[in-house]
């Protein structure tokens, strides 16, 4: 008797993704939808999509979604969660959104220990606007605003937002993962599951930073983009549990 062992998760609408070939966003969307289904929280989860490529996340998740202005995901999610403390609230943000224009909102939400989960997608560039330098762009990495590659003296060095957040007292669980290989995708799903569980247990702020390929703006094939994450991106942003105070 043949069984279906892999299919579209319940909370992911059957809509074709608008993302470029090989983009990590939709892998992350799917993992989140799987976790939401497995934890049985689809009917009480409220998502906050960002400005950026993932703004259209609301077209794919079959749950309540409220769009945030650029960078304000953590503040908006705070407002939702404080009014509905028994719901599960997540904010989904890119690197420019969370680590440049929304740094203040993110740090203070973490520091207050807001009981929300943040999914931070790090693809080391501004994807939607066409590949400009992001706060996470690697030194030497080309972008449309760093001719000749990002230069520390001229452009500043990449920012370790997750590590910065870890020193806030309200942050409970912070992990950096990637979606560039089967192994890393499985680890990412585990990390997302743990982050949601932290929130369900009311422990405080959780954040998963996910290294994600952007083949279009990196000007690489999707397979090469995944290799580049292994070989280069992880040198700057090593995969690890950055903070775990879940006891």
């Amino acid at each position: 008797m043949e069984k279906v062992v892999f299919k579209r998760p319940k909370y992911m609408k059957k809509a074709p993704f608008h993302y470029c070939p090989g983009c990590g966003h939709s892998i992350i969307h799917r993992l989140m939808a799987e976790v939401i289904e497995e934890l049985g929280i689809g009917e009480k989860t409220i998502g906050v999509p960002p400005a950026g490529c993932a703004v259209l996340a609301y077209d794919y998740f079959d749950i309540d979604m409220g769009e945030a202005p650029h960078g304000r995901g953590a503040a908006l999610a705070t407002g939702v969660k404080r009014i509905l403390p028994d719901r599960i609230v997540f904010s989904y943000q890119g690197d420019g959104d969370i680590a440049a224009i929304g740094t203040a909102e993110t740090i203070h939400a973490a520091n207050r220990g807001e009981n929300i989960t943040v999914i931070f997608v790090n693809n080391s560039c501004y994807g939607m606007t066409g590949g400009q330098m992001a706060p996470t762009t690697l030194l030497g990495q080309n972008s449309t605003t760093t001719p000749g590659g990002r230069d520390k003296d001229r452009d500043g060095a990449p920012i370790d937002l997750s590590e910065m957040l870890a020193i806030t007292r309200g942050a409970v669980y912070i992990e950096r993962t990637a979606v560039n290989s089967i192994k890393n995708i499985r680890k990412t799903k585990k990390a997302i599951t743990k982050a949601f569980k932290v929130q369900m247990a009311g422990l405080g702020f959780s954040l998963i930073e996910i290294l994600s390929p952007c083949p279009t703006n990196w000007k690489m094939s999707p397979v090469d983009a995944c290799k580049w994450i292994d070989e280069d991106v992880m040198q700057t942003f090593p995969l690890k549990v950055i903070k775990d105070e879940t006891g």
């Binding site: 304000r72 407002g79 009014i83």
Partner: peptide, 19 residues
């Protein structure tokens, strides 16, 4: 909530209003 900024404050209101 004493917010960290005016921007955060209005966006918290945005979230609370959505809820």
């Amino acid at each position: 909530i004493q917010a960290e900024s005016e921007l955060a404050a209005i966006n918290m209101v945005l979230g609370a209003s959505m809820a």
